[in-house]
């Protein structure tokens, strides 16, 4: 990692673990709950947010000296919404199939508070290169939690991973199901995502005692 200085490396790596947006900063919870029933959706969302946050952070960072302080929230929201809508329109015209698959995520990305949160907390006060790294790191940490939750919810809820029946067929009673195993239908529902994240936080704080709240 000779490319990045120590500080720059920390910008990317910290949010993956000790400064994770979901489990520590409490940002971007809504989408982490809604779309983690399946691993595939979690991965798509993670990749989209990495792209949007990295680009958005750079744009806001470039504009940071011209944005009037009083209306900065409006400006930030307008910038991000305009970017996402532009990409959506272009995809609709030139890559229609892809846009069909991503259209569901557009609303979730614009309303994702991780994006606003990082604009406000980081991009407004730092240079574009650092903001870019911060975007990658934070969206990466967010995506990591999404993928962990998606993995457990799909495995325990549907008995599949990426749609492949890894535990056997529940209707034909093969594989694990032959032994009397049943899918836990509850895992499919959003409230269970909250509980899975709660357990992730528990595990994380057992490993890193500094994060424990009084």
């Amino acid at each position: 990692m000779a490319l990045l200085s120590r500080k720059e490396r920390n910008l990317v790596l910290d949010p993956l673990t000790d400064d994770n947006p979901i489990t520590v900063q409490v940002l971007g919870i809504c989408s982490a709950l809604a779309i983690t029933a399946e691993l595939k959706a979690s991965v798509v969302m993670a990749v989209s947010v990495i792209a949007v946050l990295a680009v958005g952070n750079v744009v806001i960072s470039l504009l940071r000296n011209v944005i009037p302080n009083k209306i900065r929230i409006i400006v930030q929201l307008v910038v991000i919404a305009a970017l996402v809508i532009l990409v959506d329109l272009i995809l609709k015209a030139f890559a229609f199939e892809l846009s069909k698959q991503l259209s569901v995520f557009i609303g979730l990305i614009i309303t994702n508070c991780i994006i606003m949160g990082r604009f406000e907390a980081f991009a407004l006060g730092n240079n574009p290169w650092h903001s870019f790294l911060d975007g990658i790191g934070n969206a990466g940490g967010y995506g990591l939690i999404l993928i962990i939750v998606g993995f457990f919810r799909e495995l325990l809820g549907f008995g599949t991973l990426f749609g492949y029946k890894v535990l056997g067929d529940p209707i034909e009673k093969t594989g694990l199901y032959a032994l009397g195993y049943e899918n836990n239908g509850f895992m499919v529902l959003s409230p269970m995502a909250l509980i899975v994240i709660g357990i992730i936080i528990w595990v994380q704080r057992i490993k890193n005692k500094e994060l424990i709240e009084d």
Partner: peptide, 15 residues
Amino acid sequence: APLRGLGITFIITGL
């Protein structure tokens, strides 16, 4: 201790 604060709040909200 590790569950205090945010962790238990997530789980209570789930319930």
